Deep mutational scan, measured.
Amino acid sequence: MQIFVKGLTGKTTTLEVEPSDTIENVKAKIQDKTGLPPDQQRLIFAGKQLEDGRTLSDYNIQKESTLHIVWR
């Protein structure tokens, strides 16, 4: 499925993911596209910070959802 990651600059990155992907895995995909290391990424969805060990489905993140990224 496709999801979007929007940064503070307003730039949006598209990712191809599975609902079973962990947040850690998603951060690795973001690094592949942007070069930003996972330890500098904070992902937010529906006002919650996403924890590395959880999956996208744990947070009810579905296709075409938009996550927000904040740099540490």
Score class of each variant (00 low, 15 high):
residue 1 M to T: 03
residue 1 M to Y: 12
residue 1 M to I: 11
residue 2 Q to N: 10
residue 2 Q to E: 09
residue 2 Q to G: 04
residue 3 I to T: 01
residue 5 V to Y: 03
residue 6 K to C: 11
residue 6 K to F: 06
residue 8 L to I: 12
residue 8 L to V: 11
residue 9 T to D: 15
residue 9 T to Y: 15
residue 11 K to G: 12
residue 11 K to E: 13
residue 11 K to F: 14
residue 12 T to A: 08
residue 12 T to L: 14
residue 12 T to Y: 11
residue 13 T to W: 15
residue 13 T to K: 05
residue 13 T to G: 04
residue 14 T to L: 11
residue 15 L to D: 00
residue 16 E to K: 08
residue 16 E to A: 08
residue 17 V to L: 05
residue 17 V to Y: 03
residue 18 E to C: 09
residue 19 P to M: 08
residue 19 P to F: 07
residue 20 S to C: 06
residue 20 S to K: 08
residue 21 D to L: 05
residue 22 T to F: 08
residue 23 I to M: 03
residue 23 I to K: 00
residue 23 I to T: 04
residue 24 E to F: 13
residue 26 V to L: 13
residue 26 V to K: 00
residue 26 V to W: 00
residue 27 K to P: 00
residue 27 K to S: 02
residue 28 A to V: 10
residue 28 A to F: 12
residue 28 A to D: 06
residue 28 A to S: 11
residue 28 A to R: 15
residue 29 K to Q: 09
residue 29 K to A: 06
residue 30 I to P: 00
residue 30 I to C: 02
residue 30 I to M: 08
residue 30 I to W: 05
residue 30 I to Y: 12
residue 31 Q to I: 03
residue 31 Q to C: 09
residue 32 D to H: 14
residue 32 D to M: 14
residue 32 D to E: 14
residue 33 K to Q: 10
residue 33 K to H: 09
residue 34 T to K: 03
residue 34 T to L: 14
residue 35 G to K: 05
residue 35 G to S: 05
residue 35 G to V: 02
residue 36 L to E: 04
residue 38 P to S: 13
residue 39 D to L: 09
residue 39 D to Q: 10
residue 40 Q to K: 14
residue 40 Q to V: 09
residue 40 Q to T: 08
residue 40 Q to C: 11
residue 40 Q to E: 09
residue 40 Q to S: 11
residue 41 Q to Y: 15
residue 41 Q to F: 15
residue 42 R to V: 15
residue 44 I to G: 03
residue 44 I to H: 09
residue 44 I to R: 06
residue 44 I to W: 14
residue 44 I to T: 07
residue 45 F to I: 03
residue 46 A to F: 09
residue 48 K to W: 07
residue 48 K to H: 12
residue 48 K to A: 09
residue 49 Q to L: 15
residue 49 Q to D: 14
residue 49 Q to S: 09
residue 50 L to V: 04
residue 50 L to F: 02
residue 50 L to N: 00
residue 50 L to R: 00
residue 50 L to W: 01
residue 51 E to K: 09
residue 51 E to C: 07
residue 51 E to W: 05
residue 52 D to I: 05
residue 52 D to P: 06
residue 52 D to S: 07
residue 52 D to Y: 04
residue 53 G to T: 09
residue 53 G to L: 08
residue 53 G to R: 08
residue 54 R to A: 08
residue 54 R to V: 05
residue 54 R to T: 06
residue 57 S to M: 10
residue 57 S to P: 02
residue 57 S to C: 04
residue 58 D to I: 02
residue 58 D to H: 10
residue 58 D to K: 02
residue 58 D to V: 03
residue 60 N to P: 03
residue 60 N to E: 06
residue 61 I to R: 00
residue 61 I to M: 03
residue 63 K to P: 15
residue 63 K to M: 11
residue 64 E to R: 08
residue 64 E to N: 14
residue 65 S to M: 11
residue 65 S to W: 03
residue 65 S to C: 05
residue 66 T to A: 04
residue 66 T to M: 10
residue 66 T to D: 03
residue 67 L to C: 01
residue 67 L to E: 00
residue 67 L to M: 04
residue 67 L to Y: 01
residue 68 H to R: 08
residue 68 H to P: 01
residue 68 H to N: 09
residue 69 I to D: 04
residue 70 V to I: 12
residue 70 V to R: 08
residue 71 W to Y: 13
residue 71 W to S: 12
residue 71 W to V: 14
residue 72 R to K: 13
residue 72 R to P: 14
residue 72 R to I: 15
residue 72 R to N: 14
